[in-house]
Design a protein around this nucleic acid. Structure first.
Lengths: 354, 354
DNA sequence: ATGAAAGCGCTAACAC
DNA sequence: GTGTTAGCGCTTTCAT
């Protein structure tokens, strides 16, 4: 029996099969088809089977757009990162994507390039097609973030609002607690006999950068350890390298015997810069990174680092965005991972090379 | 004058402002509001201004969902990668995202984990909310890819269909042409006096892996250079490290003096493994990576590598998906980048260490 | 247990 | 130049 014109499956621009087709093929109404496919208990087993079979036969895939439009929930979340290329965010994203994917939530991604305007454009652009927004190391102002909150639930990762601002509902915050790791790192270096540390900092505007600076300063002060801070514009390899060269050149004057870095990329750069400046790690200077984003053994000597799990941060952000319950900010702890790049301070400066 | 109930902006779950509100506020019909906002020439300047002002005043953001539903175009593309964490794909993604973002196209991302089933699920899941799909190093079968093509235009990156299959319309292919780079690498090693090369391969199933193997085999054959191939399961640091240890242990028996690696991650692993096996690069063995995904100086010694631009591949994929015109497959060339990890072969084997 | 109908927010004919 | 109407594909009352 021929129920109306069969959709001629020509080779041209396919018209996707809709729930209407499925309903027709199964001989039920659209409503019933919808119920059957979404597993409503209000549909009898025999009809359900027919509907499902029709759906399979027609290779039916429900339109998420239409569904979202009516339900008001999209099944997607948006993530905005400052730099997709940075291993820290890459791991963060992997953790997030895995956790969300397991719940069949899609991920829309945007790279802000550390540019607040671009970040804001991305927020607006995404806001109508996601259920929530995850902003990693956001460079937006507190006000802008609060504003974003009125569109969609927001989870801030690696950043917290100044608490003078009233915390809006629908705002979650997940951060890495750098204190334990940095405190341990300072203590570790101190116990190895180091008496002058140079810290190669990241960009000044970053919230997490400020946290690290504070934690380290505090720890060093308590130990009576003098700390010298070197600023860089971008927290990447080449900035570290430049700093490394500088440190190599100045070490004999300022007495620096240990270097800490904003992150592992910078540390790797410092390593290269020191080497180019004729200094060896850990013989001449000790070196500590941050993030534990490098596979063990990737650096040589293996890098002592303040370990945290960007991946865990991503997973935590995923959970926060899925249930915007409490206001307590999630924290991922840090701990010092001692490997080969730190060693007992040599009394004198080794004979300068090259 | 009060036109109906003003939406009470309570603190509770905001109801987003719709084009209806804007139209009402501007005192025009919804259609006119739509036209005004989308820049239709058929609306007089004065009304346009009123509409736009109302939109701004109400902080109106058009619903992409609704728009997509009616226009049939979503303004999003989906990207599926085997591993978000891998720098190659990370650069690829960055190139893609930049190129698409410039056209105000959003990016939906999925990590297949090199799992064909998961990849297929992602394809289905995304298909109703994107205008096109970019599959990087897809592990799907030719048939599955062709099937995906019937849902949305597809661009294959770093993979080509076996040409026995009829090429579907709406399928683009962009690849990295490894031949020039690998040929140059083999010639380079040969000219340095190396007479036995070991190649540390990646996963056997990968299309791009096959290309590299073919290119290298061909080049070596032409040079009369014997080639030994070591297979690995995953193309990552630790696989390389294992291979490196093995090579260090066997080098004296098989006469290997130069190692080539599937990619830079593997090469870095090989470097570590060789070091652990008491071999030094480039003194004892030369080493060549692939991709140029490491910042220069990140590895030490700096890695000679077959350079290609994953970023450029991403940009090319973006262009392909935006205009699914021709069938010619886009190619990104490769070239050998000589740095410090390759050197003239030593006549004898250096005294084995450790 | 199933169907008919309304409507999510928007654009695109088709009037006027 | 602007308004009216239909409808994208789906879910969800409300009847039956």
């Amino acid at each position: 029996m021929n129920l109306g014109p069969i959709r001629s499956q020509s080779l041209a621009a396919q018209v996707a099969t809709t729930i209407r087709n499925v309903a027709a093929a199964a001989g039920v109404s659209v409503a019933t088809a919808s119920r059957a496919l979404s597993g409503s208990p209000a549909v009898i087993e025999s009809t359900r089977r027919r509907v499902v079979q029709a759906a399979i036969a027609l290779d039916y895939t429900p339109s998420r757009l239409a569904r979202s439009l009516v339900t008001g929930s999209t099944g997607n979340v948006g993530v905005i990162l400052p730099d997709i290329t940075n291993p820290f965010y890459t791991s963060f994203l992997a953790g997030l994507e895995t956790a969300l994917g397991a719940q069949d939530i899609g991920v829309l991604i945007g790279d802000s390039g550390e540019n607040p305007e671009r970040e804001n454009r991305l927020v607006r652009r995404m806001s109508t097609q996601v259920d929530g927004l995850v902003l990693a190391s956001s460079r937006l102002s507190d006000e802008q973030i609060v504003a974003a909150t009125s569109r969609r639930p927001v989870v801030l990762a690696n950043r917290m609002l100044e608490t003078r601002t009233e915390l809006p509902k629908r705002l979650g915050q997940v951060v890495i607690d750098v204190h334990p790791g940095f405190t341990a790192a300072a203590a570790h270096l101190h116990s190895l006999g180091h008496r002058q540390i140079t810290y190669v900092d990241g960009p000044a505007q970053s919230w997490s950068g400020r946290q690290k600076r504070i934690a380290l300063t505090l720890a060093c002060t308590r130990l009576g350890l003098p700390l010298r801070i070197l600023s860089t514009m971008r927290a990447d390899f080449s900035a570290g390298r430049t700093a490394g060269r500088q440190i190599a050149a100045e070490a004999q004057h300022d007495g620096t015997t240990a270097v800490m870095a904003f992150n592992d990329q910078v540390a790797l750069g410092v390593l290269a810069g020191l080497r180019e400046g004729g200094k060896r790690v850990p013989d001449d200077l000790s070196l500590v990174g941050c993030d534990d984003s490098l596979e063990d053994g990737l650096a040589w000597p293996a890098l002592t680092t303040v370990g945290s799990s960007a991946r865990a941060l991503g997973e935590l952000a995923a959970h926060k965005i899925l249930n915007p319950l409490g206001h307590e900010s999630g924290r991922i702890p840090t701990a010092l991972i001692v490997r080969e790049s730190t060693e007992r301070a040599r009394s004198g400066q080794g004979a300068p090379v090259g």
